[in-house]
Structure formats: structure tokens, C-alpha cells
Amino acid sequence: MAEFKLNTPLTDEDIAQLKAGDVVFLSGHIYSARDAAHKKLIDLLDAGKELPFDLKGAAVYYVGPSPAPPGRPIGSAGPTTSYRMDSYAPRLHSLGLKATIGKGKRNDETRKAMEDHTAVYFGATGGAGALLSNSIVDSKVIAFDDLGPEAVREMTVKDFPLLVINDCHGGELYAVPDRKAAGIE
């Protein structure tokens, strides 16, 4: 398993070299969006309008941070469960989205979209939101402020620690549950 330092925007070459299990320290701008924001992004696309950020080479972080206390750019900011964004992700990948960051399994359509469009799914450690916030040096709301914790934020990250869960070659890192060993098969 290799270790990479990457910067946004991400290129096809950046993504193609990654394999499930690789560690990536990501720097640059990433965009937060979760359930409600995704719905609004898709509504904008359907209406033929411009998105609040450029999807080309972008990385989207599935996160709804806690409020920033005084003196910090952001509150706790760990990943939310990704499958809820599976109904939106393939379309965004087809428009240039290169990476998503979350936790938990993706569905077949999203995995296939990553293969078709040279994209990757990164895992960040769930429940380590305080620790992960240390790698976010700046954060500003750029769209859908009314969504509160679900607003779209542009976050500036420095060496944000990630693990490649799904690569663009069909590789996946998650353990397959051993039902036989557990006595249910």
C-alpha cells in the first residue's frame, strides 16, 4: 500500500495511480455537501443552472460540521455515511467530479461510475471529527446557507488524511463479512 500527497483539482493521472488501501494526504479546496445539498445541486443541474463550484477535478466531502467555536475555522468535521448520496453521485462523476469522501459502502452504480469516469472514493475515519478538523485550515459557506450544517462549504485542507476505499479499477478495501465463521451460513 502506497502513500500519496495530492492537491486539488485532481487529474485523471492523480486518480488512475491510486489503489484501494492507499493512503492519501489531500491538500487544496474540497466542497462539503450531504443529503439536502445534493438534492439542490441536482435541481440546479436539471434547471440548466450553474453549480456553486466547478465539478471538474473536484472532491466532495460528505460532511455536516458542528458549529465553529470562537478561534477555530470549523467545528468537528468527520464523514457521514455515503450510501445516501449514491442516487446523486453517478451524475456528478459524469460531469467531472473526481473524488468523494465519506464512510461506508457505495452501490454498484456509483462504483461503476467511478470506473467509467476515473474517479475515486476516499474513506475518512468516522467518529474522529475533532481530529479531522485539525486538517481543515479554512471554511466558508458558498451556497445554500439556509441548510445550516448541510450548507455547501468550500474548505481549505492541508494534508487531509484519507484511505482509498474504491479505486477506479474496481478495487475495494472493505472486509467481506465472514458469515460462515459467525455461524449464520
Binding site: G126, A128, G129, A130, L131
Partner: peptide
């Protein structure tokens, strides 16, 4: 490594008073 991060996260939350997890 995951467990190490969770313990570090707990130490940091205690020190900074940031929530352990953003999902409170």
C-alpha cells in the same frame, strides 16, 4: 490505526471541547 485515531480524537476533543463527532 483506526483505534489509535479514535483515542487521539478523544484526547483532542477533551482538550479543545470540540464534539467527539460532528453528529451530536
Amino acid at each position: 490505526e483506526v483505534l489509535r485515531q479514535l483515542l487521539e480524537n478523544a484526547d483532542l476533543a477533551m482538550e479543545t471541547k470540540l464534539p467527539l463527532c460532528q453528529d451530536c
